[in-house]
Design a protein around this nucleic acid. Structure first.
Lengths: 248, 248
DNA sequence: AATCGTGATCTGTGATCTCAATTTGCGGTA
DNA sequence: TACCGCAAATTGAGATCACAGATCACGATT
């Protein structure tokens, strides 16, 4: 009947706060163990505490943030074991994504992947870690999006979100990250080749290799970064249970 | 310094609401497409709308609930394609969990698995689908817990949560579910055998088989259940943007 | 009789306030 | 100097209120 005038997207404040925090985690602006308070953020962002609270709780649900026993929020600190687990999960999940992506990827997207990898190489040679990380993220996600599995993509997003505070800060701790980063681009070339040949299992293997490599790169930095973590309080807090859910 | 007196677990109302809704989803008390309102639930549970709101938002973040363009909440309805994707992801993720579980599982846990599977068999022969589903869930999760990968377990929990409304209601739509359910116990036996022999890849294969089988069981019910879904409104809503997050 | 406008009601979002519990810092005591 | 204790400031949780948009029903108009 009427023409399609497009959607008026309603961005709630809560979502804006969430996205902003998310980006801060991705880019490593928030360090593991760093604590966040509702009122502070609300004041910084110019809103009431309410939307901030809900954004924080959502990030807690996604395990990007942690709520200590005293209920204060902090960026989830990882142990080396947790980091290893995370990488294992990534290998399985992103392996599946790569596998499925190869079956559906278009030549245009492959071209785009090659382009992104060139950007990444440039960043490596010019020694701009930020650009490298950005390109790396773009490479992986454009690949995974080709799988057309939104639920899987969502899981992967969650995994990257948790790894973010480490990935972005790790390069600061290395004296010469270039050879490591360069190796990353080689894995990417292997992935591109698998896309061209249409060999899903080879792509999955290459992704797993890439993740494994980056894990070796970052793992030892986990504890280094975490040692900046404040001790994190001890005693629990006896929540307030004014009303009691009564019936079903 | 002081003795460890254990933790006084502070269960917030929000968490109580969350857990109750979660259980309702798992057991299929909430149907796909069914809509929920904050105030209704708050009145039913005898609390203020606030904790309910936060519990609902958390479930939305986990994709167990969906927020329509008009911002009302409903149990996420699946298309057949989404269901297929979910099963594919489950095969990969739970396959990994089974694989790792075999490497760490103890004889006691294996005995427990066998016990649970007997319960499940009993439920099948006596025709008590609820008992079967409960035992099935217990079987899978005691297996996965042996992997000692909490992050992976959390992902699996999310996947099951989304499948819950279907799994529990599917049997109602079948005239004779017994042979299908019986086949499930056979896969479980295969899994137990893999645990005993200590063959991780065989366990992963068996889990994948189990999931694949149950997918075949439930897939066609997806649309049957969803057709009870109300049409779900059309026009978007122009949120209210009173305050604007200003600076970083 | 079908359609459109108008009002009441419902729904989620955000702001504000209160409360309980933790945390912090200062002062006094041993 | 080290330790203990109490009070002020801070923090998250929950309740209540205000508001904008959506939904629905009823009635007037064509």
């Amino acid at each position: 009947m009427t023409a399609d005038l497009g959607q008026i997207e309603s961005v709630t404040i809560q979502l804006q706060v969430y996205n902003r925090l998310r980006e801060a985690l991705f880019t490593g602006k928030l360090l593991p163990g760093e604590s966040l308070t509702i009122r502070n953020l609300a004041a910084m962002l110019g809103t009431s505490p309410m939307p901030v609270r809900e954004a924080l709780q959502r990030l807690v649900a996604e395990h990007a943030l942690t709520q200590l026993p005293n209920r204060t929020f902090c960026v989830t600190p990882f142990t080396a074991a947790m980091f290893r687990e995370l990488m294992r999960v990534r290998m399985a999940v992103e392996g599946l994504a790569a596998n499925q992506a190869v079956r559906r990827i278009t030549p245009e997207t492959i071209a785009r992947l090659r382009e992104i990898n060139l950007e990444m190489k440039a960043g490596v040679e010019e020694g701009v870690p930020t650009a490298v990380m950005t390109a790396n993220r773009a490479f992986h996600f454009t690949l995974y999006e080709s799988a057309e599995m939104p639920q899987l993509l969502d899981i992967i997003n969650g995994l990257w979100l948790r790894a973010g505070p480490y990935l972005m800060n790790a390069h600061r701790k290395l004296d010469n990250p270039t050879p490591f980063l360069r190796a990353g681009t080689l894995f990417h070339e292997r992935i591109i080749a698998a896309c061209e040949r249409g060999t899903p299992t080879a792509a999955a293997r290459a992704i797993a290799g890439d993740i494994w490599h980056s894990a070796r790169y970052f793992r030892r930095n986990v504890d280094v970064i975490n040692e900046a973590t404040p001790p994190a309080a001890a005693t629990p807090r006896r929540g307030r249970r004014r009303a009691e859910p009564s019936e079903s």
